[in-house]
Write a protein that binds this DNA or RNA. Structure first.
Length: 112
DNA sequence: ACCGTGACGGCGA
DNA sequence: TTCGCCGCCACGG
């Protein structure tokens, strides 16, 4: 397997810090590692050799849709991603969007 | 070194 | 509110 680039290591490291039942957007993750492109982050996660050891399934799009998983933007892979999150307590609406995270105190702070 | 691609994001129509 | 276009960065061929 190919050695992860420095950039990818930063992405995986930041991703690892995401607690159970919590989700983050690609953009937020990008800010964490001081990167101006959410796309670049997505590309790194796309080839993540440590999934799901590195919880890349907790990373979603800013519009609250799931984004992708294992290089797929839809299909069984995405379905699996959704269930992983549900198992961690993340709720979804009928449109398949993330409704709330774990149902903890910060779900209140999120407004919405 | 150049070019095309992609798990994204924001804004205008 | 949904759709499309353009800008953003990193990577592989």
């Amino acid at each position: 397997m190919k050695t992860p680039s420095t950039f990818q290591k930063k992405v995986y490291d930041a991703c690892r810090h995401i607690p159970c039942g919590k989700v983050v957007t690609y953009g937020q993750l990008a800010r964490e590692i001081n990167c101006g492109s959410a796309r670049a982050v997505g590309q790194a996660l796309r080839v993540n050799p440590f999934a799901p050891e590195v919880p890349c399934h907790r990373v979603i799009k800013s519009d609250r849709s799931l984004g992708g998983f294992y290089g797929h933007k839809s299909g069984p892979e995405i379905d699996r991603k959704r269930r992983l999150l549900e198992k961690e307590g993340v709720a979804f609406d009928t449109a398949g969007k993330v409704l709330k995270e774990s149902g903890w105190e910060f779900s209140l702070a999120k407004g919405k």
